[in-house]
Design a protein around this nucleic acid. Structure first.
Lengths: 249, 249
DNA sequence: GCGGGTTTTGCACATTTGGGCCGGAATGTG
DNA sequence: CACATTCCGGCCCAAATGTGCAAAACCCGC
């Protein structure tokens, strides 16, 4: 990886998360911490970020001094994203929906990863766009204002022509009896088609949505291959899902 | 392989992947790295790419990395955007391409405006999304990294099915003899289809691009209905275009 | 088609840059 | 205050670069 490229990645991470740790960057990009330190030095010399012991902070962050755990469940989602990222291999075709968990996944993608992402979620596209080695296929149709993804017959028929390796589905409710449920008809139709168009379906959710219910049925548990939460895989809460034949991470 | 041919290949690779390594190019084209280095030197001298230790980066790449708030000709573009906005009426279907001028147009849309915008430009979509009363139709296809718009056969065939009221085209070069010209083949094909799919074609450009030329032909002047620049409509520079039958604003 | 000039290319050399590693100093942390 | 990280300043090696030079290819007018 070229020096400039690496520095651009660091800057992107800083602007995204407001903070970076040298150790994290080092393992992400796979260079020594010394190199990271030298990069941070250069970037702070040119005023692109603020160097602190152990990493760096974004410039905007220092102005507003409030703690980093601002969004409830944010760290949980980052844990989920890390687990999800570990499933992606070079060369894969990956379908993704929308939602904050998916955005976190997009942000956690290692810079070296070489894959094709297919989605109709505008915020996700914006994140993928920043990654140096990722190809993006945009699913076109009418943009749903509330969910910021494209929905409609066109979108569904395009997805029909795809057979992706993985589908990452951020879910709003999952339940042993009813499976996955949601509350937006258009989005449900889309998710159903995405499930049908993927070899492997991976559900991402924070644990509080487990054993909850929404009005519209998306799919029952049999179609789900993997379930990822922020919990340890052998947590009591997840046992029933393992028994139902789902791989839990 | 001819020098010119080689440099075209290099440029193509850079625009495709956003970065190239001298070593890779050398083995791909089968010339010495010295030659590659000399090519990169020439290409960076003419501003086609950015040379870094070990290879080169595309121009768009460094813009993402080091955002400079002073977009070239920014104020002029705001003037242009204001004029363009005044053409849009409630209920219209509007096609737009990409480019900084179009983004400025999107930002200048009055909140009360009720219209449908159709585009494949991700930055433009993001802007439209913020407006309360605007419907957005996303044109899907593979996302071009350099231009941040979707390009390809799917995109073109979708646009074929549309007949929009207006098409706002941000242009890179216009010239009395050759009409509108550009430098990216995929984008040119898309713009041609957009022109064909619209009742009225409105070209937006800052005045310095008037009477300039790019390698690939998009359309001649006869297809253009309106030309908007930051200049006064009766400026000397614009006279020839008025004589060619174009409405100048 | 041929001799002279220009351009392009490859090679050898010295120089610079990038990045890993190490030991001692500095900074956090409990 | 003791212990663990992190930082700093070298040091070193490999890779990339710039430069000068000579061979090869190309152009062009005669």
């Amino acid at each position: 990886m070229l020096k400039r490229e690496r520095q651009a990645y660091i800057l992107h991470q800083v602007n995204l998360h407001n903070k970076v740790l040298s150790a994290t960057l080092s393992s992400d990009i796979d260079v020594s911490e010394d190199t990271i330190r030298r990069d941070l030095l250069e970037l702070s010399d040119t005023g692109k970020l603020i160097r602190v012991h152990g990493g760096a902070l974004s410039h905007s962050f220092s102005k507003v001094a409030y703690p980093s755990n601002k969004v409830y469940g944010h760290n949980n989602k980052r844990v989920i994203a890390q687990k999800a990222v570990s499933m992606i291999r070079d060369g894969m075709f990956v379908l993704t929906g929308g939602g904050t968990t998916i955005i976190e996944l997009a942000r956690a993608l290692p810079p070296a990863l070489n894959a094709t992402f297919i989605t109709g979620s505008i915020p996700a596209i914006v994140e993928y766009m920043h990654h140096p080695n990722i190809d993006v296929i945009v699913i076109g149709d009418k943009l749903s204002r509330s969910s910021k993804i494209t929905v409609g017959a066109d979108a569904i028929s395009k997805i029909q022509n795809i057979k992706a390796d993985l589908f990452f589905l951020g879910i709003n409710a999952i339940d042993l009896e009813h499976g996955i449920t949601d509350n937006d008809w258009d989005v449900v139709r889309l998710k159903q088609q995405m499930i049908a168009s993927s070899q492997k379906v991976v559900c991402l959710t924070i644990s509080e949505k487990i054993n909850s219910l929404q009005p519209i049925h998306i799919s029952d548990l049999s179609k789900i291959d993997v379930l990822i939460t922020e919990l340890d895989p052998d947590d009591e809460l997840l046992k029933p899902y393992i028994n139902a034949g789902i791989t839990v991470m």
